[in-house]
Design a protein around this nucleic acid. Structure first.
Lengths: 213, 213
DNA sequence: TTATATACTGACTTTCGAGTCATTAAAGCG
DNA sequence: CGCTTTAATGACTCGAAAGTCAGTATATAA
């Protein structure tokens, strides 16, 4: 390919695409608009304007509003929880500390972060129209997080720190309050705001110690 | 009223409104359609057809699609958790049993019931456009349920059965897994179905006993 | 039976926004 | 500088669905 006498694929670098980053600008703008008004009420014109372009430009890069939507979701799902695995793998302390940390990361990643919350809302409200996206979200985010939880619980059980409970089979129970917090922020926060860090604290206490005296 | 010589307020009963129950038929039909396709993609014509009427008829009773939507939500929020209070008030057993029962009712009412789940989805996805509805939902459903939880926890703490935890201040933590189950059913159930009764069981075990050995 | 009021209808009007495309502007290149 | 290719534009088309209303059907009253 990089045969010197015969400049390889001459279009590669030279044209210096004036705007190779237009697509991402548009995706970014689209995310903001979807966040504010949801998919159905988002106008392509508005997205374009926010990206500093005209409507036609959007259709230069995305064939359809639906496709643009897909691109947005893929783009923002991607960098979601690489953090977690790294954290878990090289951890040395007790399983309690480990699980606490992991759960706190979940709060940070899902409940605290407006963009991630927006994705969640989108999945819930627009999900049935885009089954492919839901699948990706499930695999890359939900399932991934739950599996991490499972691993940690296993670690704790094997070390004798944790009781062998059914929690391993239903990590949903463990992260349930995180989901609750995210939904709350999305929906009820202007009526009755909650302090996520306090919720998290209470969550961890209850999770480990239980409610009984 | 059947005074022959001077018919009192002649409009009152006589016309025998041929269809006093039309509005409710329409609301019912609207709920079904909203449940299937969401608010934005629901067509008034479809709602009308499903109610066995023509589009014009809908606008005879509801000035706007938005108003119809409001009517639907109000109608279905209403009879949501009267069950709970009755249950709690005349309960005699241990607080653990009481709380277990209350939580199971929550699962039944929110996670198991398709209509209630639909309302939840609507609140999450359409909420910002209808702040009044969210407020009602919060007051009549969410806040009501959380307060019941608080009362039960208090009862348990006073009787010495429960530890005095911060859970009383954040009952969200306690019902979090219920919310998670509802969302799961709404969003991921065809990818990875869950058995709600098993989730509930695991939830209760963990809640009372905690995770630690 | 006729007159009048009420319930209902669905063809029509209007609005709105997704998607197109002829045109313009700019960049690269000899 | 022209010539060509590529990026971008926004006025326009077109379909879809909300909302209207003149007209029809049915019931009650007289």
């Amino acid at each position: 390919m990089n045969d010197p006498e015969n400049p390889p694929d001459e279009h590669n670098l030279k044209p210096t695409r004036r705007k190779a980053d237009r697509p991402d600008e548009i995706v970014q703008a689209a995310m903001e608009v979807f966040l504010q008004v949801g998919f159905a009420r988002a106008k392509v014109t508005d997205i374009a304007r926010k990206a500093g372009a005209a409507k036609g430009t959007v259709y230069l890069y995305f064939t359809t509003k639906d496709h643009l939507f897909e691109a947005v979701v893929r783009r923002f799902i991607g960098p979601m929880l690489n953090q977690m695995d790294a954290y878990v793998s090289n951890f040395k302390g007790t399983s309690r500390e480990l699980l606490s940390g992991a759960i706190l990361i979940c709060y940070e990643q899902l409940a605290d972060n407006p963009t991630r919350r927006a994705i969640l809302r989108i999945m819930i409200s627009e999900g049935h129209r885009f089954p492919g996206l839901v699948e990706i979200y499930h695999r890359d985010v939900v399932s991934a997080a739950l599996n991490t939880m499972r691993r940690i619980i296993d670690r704790g059980v094997r070390s004798g720190e944790f009781r062998p409970t059914a929690a391993k089979d239903f990590p949903q129970v463990i992260v349930g309050p995180v989901m609750m917090s995210a939904i709350w922020k999305l929906t009820f926060d202007n009526i009755a705001p909650i302090d996520i860090s306090k919720v998290a604290e209470s969550h961890l206490d209850l999770l480990f110690e239980g409610l009984l005296a």
